[in-house]
Design a protein around this nucleic acid. Structure first.
Lengths: 240, 240
DNA sequence: CGCGACTTTGAAGTAAATCAATGGGCGTGG
DNA sequence: CCACGCCCATTGATTTACTTCAAAGTCGCG
């Protein structure tokens, strides 16, 4: 179950291929690559324990990890599903605070760790770069708000409907298709439901003809049915 | 119910007296004061409607507002209680996104609105200032995480226990005292409970001798009792 | 002193968590 | 290539406790 570090010289190459670093200055990339480490993790491995102090910004190069909280009953609440080209840890780095969450690999994954000190140095050198990070954290904050809105729905049906509708493309009509970002268990943990409840709600919506389900592939057939479950609650279209 | 704008020239004076601007450069204060407006709101007034696009950063000079989401059943979920010297709207300004929440004055309040454009200009001029904003948003993001942790607790008793324990001073012993940040109704809405449930849970904890309640003043008498309600929240890395 | 808002308390209904067991899909290993 | 085993998903039955509706009580304020 041990993680396996990969030779650092590859970092720059990896960074240039990752969507996360698209548009970044070559010089900056080179500077940040110096203190970075590429690490492979196995499925189920806990990369970050609750209370750890992060020294690096973590970027998923390949695979997927989940950021989550452990609940008293042994289950967990998923905060964020982080896939290729995405990151976590910005806020904890900036605030120099122990992580209030743990992070586990959902599948075999490779992550690049960018030295936090170097990153902050870059920010304090270049306002535009700092502002970019500010935008990143702001976006995540807004994302957490919509997650909170989903979880705040009283009934499980409403939570699922709210979650599904967040995946509607801006211009889409009654029907559209999308893929769940992770296993149904993880999605259930993200919207604050027991996996069984999530399964039951999907089954009911399916029987009502509102959706179709094929594994992780969800087809919304009549989004109006879902909308009707969310009385007087305007849902801002989320960017996919 | 209409808000009342107050003459702008006072802005600089107000800013110098607000804890929010402590340590800010005088020049910057002067620049920002130019495009700012001081506004008074009456209790219950909705300063910001869901979906509004903020043009300003809002700082509470006096009073308290609540940032909240409206739920299908007519109640609301409180995201944040913002009091004197605190602010809201950073993330929406930076991302130029409509507010996913609404904001209501809990009591008669005065707020200072700082022009968003001017603020962003300041940030792009000075990395240190931009980093300060980054820290501010990061802190709020971490705050939302702990709020999420409270709301993720399955039982109402656990939610309340989790919420109460968050107010324990670092060094405090078994007992300590603190004030609820708002009415019990708003606090209940913050931790995702119906006001009745919150009241009942407090009553039960009181009967058990764990706490004492006098209006908004809460005395935690035996914090161990509360801790015991939150089993093994931190699981040591036993998997080795 | 009386009104309104907040809080508490009571009773009932309901929905979700939980426990339990089966089924299905996939990767692994034979 | 097939068989096994594991993990994920589904379905059923039960229990719990939270929401909801209702009403009385309390507090602060005008």
């Amino acid at each position: 179950m041990n993680s396996q570090s990969i030779a650092p010289p590859q970092s720059l190459e990896v960074m240039k291929r990752s969507p996360y670093f698209l548009g970044w200055d070559d010089q900056r990339l080179a500077r940040l690559a110096r203190g970075s480490r590429l690490t492979a993790y196995r499925k189920g491995e806990e990369l970050v324990h609750k209370g750890d102090t992060l020294r690096d910004l973590q970027i998923v190069i390949q695979g997927q990890v989940r950021v989550a909280l452990r609940l008293p009953n042994g289950t967990e609440r998923v905060i964020e599903l982080v896939g290729r080209g995405e990151s976590f840890g910005e806020a904890c780095l900036v605030e120099d605070t122990p992580t209030p969450y743990h992070v586990i690999a959902n599948v075999n994954s490779r992550l690049l760790a960018i030295d936090g000190g170097a990153l902050i140095a870059e920010m304090q050198r270049d306002p535009a770069f700092c502002f970019q990070m500010l935008k990143r954290v702001s976006k995540r904050l807004l994302g957490m708000l919509t997650d909170t809105e989903v979880c705040a729905q009283r009934s499980g049906t409403q939570r699922v409907a709210c979650f599904l509708m967040r995946h509607k493309p801006d211009h889409a009509s009654e029907s559209f298709v999308f893929e769940l970002p992770a296993s149904k268990r993880d999605v259930a943990a993200k919207i604050g439901l027991a996996p069984e409840t999530f399964s039951r709600v999907l089954a009911r919506l399916r029987q009502q003809g509102a959706i179709r389900v094929q594994g992780r592939r969800i087809e919304i057939k009549r989004s109006q049915v879902l909308m009707d479950l969310l009385p007087r609650n305007a849902i801002p279209p989320a960017a996919a």
